[in-house]
Design a binder for these strands. Structure first.
Lengths: 225, 225
DNA sequence: ACCTGAACACCGTTCAAGT
DNA sequence: ACCTGAACACCGTTCAAGT
């Protein structure tokens, strides 16, 4: 058998004979990866799929990123950039924290695949992520929190937010015991109001968490400003 | 080239000529999967690795499980079985909830790969998981919580627990801004006490959450018992 | 410097063939 | 009924070769 003719190629984007601007850039890869993740989900974001949408061969990506993990980190930073930290510029810390938490949850509800990554990824190469933490930390400090508790407050709220973001993905019947014997679970399910149940649970938990944090802060006594 | 001789095989576990008890069982696969996950982590749990440790070819597993997701679900239920719900048999609901939350967090800190799974997996084929929810729900109801809030309380605490379990996997320097400009983040990092920082954040958050939940319950007024 | 195409060492899963 | 071994359609990544 002779080799089949090469398949038709997408329109050439490169110049001929002389160096031109590169087809790919790091930012272009990140932007396309965000779209791909939103459209096709975690399993849809493959290096091959990403390359195809960029009109390039998979190996070309490796001139711009070292690994797929790199791409995910960049996507992450891009998502974090859009989280609303504006509350920390004026309103009281608890109100600001609530606004931040809602925005944070909504962002990761759209990108649940990123949850296991942010929990583990160092922040040092993610400028927008660092900027977010800077604003949140400054707001808490200005709100009267002692410096030694600031990071723990951030981590506690963040843990609740990320867990809640995962919960938004759960199917409606997740607590249906099926054939199994669980009368109280059935009772609680039946009594739970319909609608956006993940939202109701987040609302309850966030209110409780903030109430408790206010109590903790009140026990600390006034801080130096 | 002639085919190379077959490699030496592990000691035969099967009888000859007559039907014997099968090499594999669903429970045996689950138990080995738990060990593999603990020893080699998420990426170490492959169907091929699982089969090798069971002395069997990968395709043999598919006589007992439909997909790898099945294996993960069974592992999950096995992990949930060991979570401590004993508090709900006597102590007040808030104390019981705290004990449950700590035990739950510790279990998933050992199995962070399962976190994205439990958040999304229906409970109907997981008997130990249902039994856990049954005890927790009954304890909250007995503790005075109105039925329509029970599931939301469970989900809120669970979200915090699972997010915190992921946080236990974060590297020590996760908040180090590196070259980036983030003075308040630096201040907060420096003031944060060393030791088990994930534990300190969980402790703070859980205390706050429980304080807030007590306040929510107090507003509800007494319930029918 | 940046891209292509072939290749490598894996995945999870299917299926005909054996006993 | 339950296992083997070959095969399939993928992965992420590397690398020599081209311009």
């Amino acid at each position: 058998m002779s080799a089949p003719p090469p398949p038709p190629r997408p329109p050439a984007r490169r110049g001929r004979g002389r160096p031109t601007s590169p087809v790919l850039t790091g930012d272009g890869i990140t932007a396309e990866a965000v779209r791909l993740l939103e459209e096709r989900g975690r399993d849809g974001l493959t290096m091959a799929a990403l390359a195809r949408r960029l009109g390039v061969s998979p190996s070309a990506l490796y001139n711009h990123v070292a690994t797929k993990q790199d791409v995910l980190r960049a996507v992450q930073d891009d998502v974090n950039r859009r989280i609303d930290c504006s509350g920390f510029d004026g309103p009281p810390w608890d109100e600001a924290l609530a606004r931040w938490a809602w925005s944070y949850r909504d962002a990761y509800a759209r990108h649940p695949a990123l949850v296991p990554i942010i929990a583990v990824t160092p922040v040092s190469s993610a400028p927008h992520t660092v900027a977010m933490y800077e604003r949140v930390s400054a707001g808490l400090l200005a709100g009267g929190w002692p410096a030694h508790l600031v990071t723990n407050v951030v981590v506690a709220v963040e843990s609740f937010v990320l867990g809640s973001a995962l919960d938004t993905q759960s199917p409606e019947d997740i607590f249906d015991p099926g054939e199994l014997d669980a009368p109280t679970v059935r009772t609680a399910n039946a009594a739970r109001p319909g609608g956006d149940t993940a939202r109701a649970a987040f609302d309850l938990g966030l209110e409780a968490l903030l109430t408790g944090l206010r109590a903790v802060l009140a026990q600390q006594g006034p801080q130096e400003g």
